[in-house]
Amino acid sequence: MDTYCWIYSTFTIPNRLVGRVGKDVVQPGVASHVDGQDEVKYHKYYQWVCFVLFFQAILFYVPRYLWKTWEGGRIKMLVLDLNCPVVGEDCKKDRKKLLVDYFRTNLHTQNFYAFRFFICEVLNFINVVGQIYFMDFFLDGEFSTYGRDVVRFTEMEPEEREDPMARVFPKVTKCTFHKYGPSGTVQKFDGLCVLPLNIVNEKIYVFLWFWFIILSILSGISLLYRAAVVAGPRVRLYLLRARSRLAPQDQVETVARQLQIGDWFVLYQLGKNIDPLIYKELMGDLAAKFEENDKDTV
């Protein structure tokens, strides 16, 4: 019976979820019922949980894969081992010159590079919100309130509380099995089916509920931050000052005035990967180069 019920669908009786186990009901959702009168809820998704989780993991990896493909190791090549605090003076001077020449040559041509990163951030937000709706559909509309219901369940009295984990992932269910009797007549057996895997599934989805809510909030905040960065030159200036706090502010302002969003993004990412002292010297060299270009233009 267990094997048959595992392969085919099992069901519970939703209006028998509340009651004393062993007196009112055999298990939550398992009790006698009348066909056509009592509501019956079939559970089929437990067979697909592992495949769905694997599919979701692939969806989460897609934005990262896109960015790694688009980025092509540019920041790693630009760092040129300047993330080490101990670098030979000649080597440091040559590599700083390469960076300054790179920015002078590619000034105002890196916006597309930055916007591809921003697209991946938007995809992260769409992905996590879309997966919340997808899991809600997969679990017959139960996922959107699943974690909240579990927390509320722990605060209720034992006699009157309905276990949401038993409602979504029942460990014991009912199963109808048909077979031929001795005379060839079809007989119907109403049996119990044990689903031990749901002991793991219910914990996985409680964790996923809280994790997805946290991810969606953080992704939303990240998008608001990114919108402020794209729309506000002053915001970019403040962030660049914070990243190059060792450099004089007038040098930072001189550099920031020359940068578009793509140039700012690359320079800001370099600040995360270069030693702060070397980054300070790089900002000074960039400011001097930009001031020299302005004088030549005049």
Rank of each mutant, 00 (worst) to 15 (best):
R241P: 05
E162L: 03
Q249K: 15
V206S: 11
K203F: 09
E253D: 04
G181M: 10
A247I: 08
R243H: 06
S144L: 08
T154P: 01
K179C: 10
Y279Q: 04
Y279A: 07
D149E: 02
V21W: 06
F177C: 09
M1E: 10
H43C: 09
L270Q: 00
A166Y: 06
L215I: 11
W209I: 04
T297H: 10
Y113K: 03
D163V: 05
G88K: 15
L223S: 09
V26G: 14
D190A: 07
F138A: 01
F115W: 01
P170A: 02
S219K: 09
V194Y: 11
G130N: 00
V18S: 08
W211V: 10
T297K: 14
E39C: 10
G232H: 03
F290Q: 04
T3K: 14
F60I: 03
V25N: 08
S222Y: 07
N273M: 00
T105F: 03
G191P: 04
Q251Y: 04
A231R: 14
V26N: 11
W48K: 15
L215V: 11
I126R: 02
L208K: 13
L208R: 13
R104V: 10
N124S: 07
V25F: 06
Q56W: 09
F54P: 01
D275L: 07
V62A: 09
F189D: 12
V86I: 15
Y8K: 13
I278W: 01
A242N: 12
F54M: 09
D294Y: 10
G88D: 15
G271M: 01
V252C: 12
V87S: 13
I221N: 03
R152H: 01
D24Q: 14
D90K: 12
K76Y: 09
G181P: 08
L282T: 02
E89F: 15
I274G: 00
F60L: 08
A288P: 07
L99H: 05
P170T: 06
R74N: 13
L246T: 09
L224Y: 13
I221P: 01
V235N: 09
G72Q: 11
E162Q: 12
I278C: 04
N15Q: 10
L17N: 04
S244V: 14
R20Q: 11
H178L: 13
G73Y: 06
E253Y: 04
G72L: 05
K289V: 13
R161Y: 01
A288G: 06
N198W: 08
T154K: 07
N273V: 00
R95E: 00
Y238V: 13
N127D: 00
Y8C: 08
Y45L: 12
K174G: 10
G191S: 14
G284D: 01
F210E: 07
S9D: 08
P14L: 08
G191I: 13
F125Y: 05
V150I: 03
D90L: 14
Q37W: 12
V129I: 07
Y46T: 14
F137Q: 02
T254F: 01
F212Y: 11
E281Y: 00
F210A: 12
S144H: 02
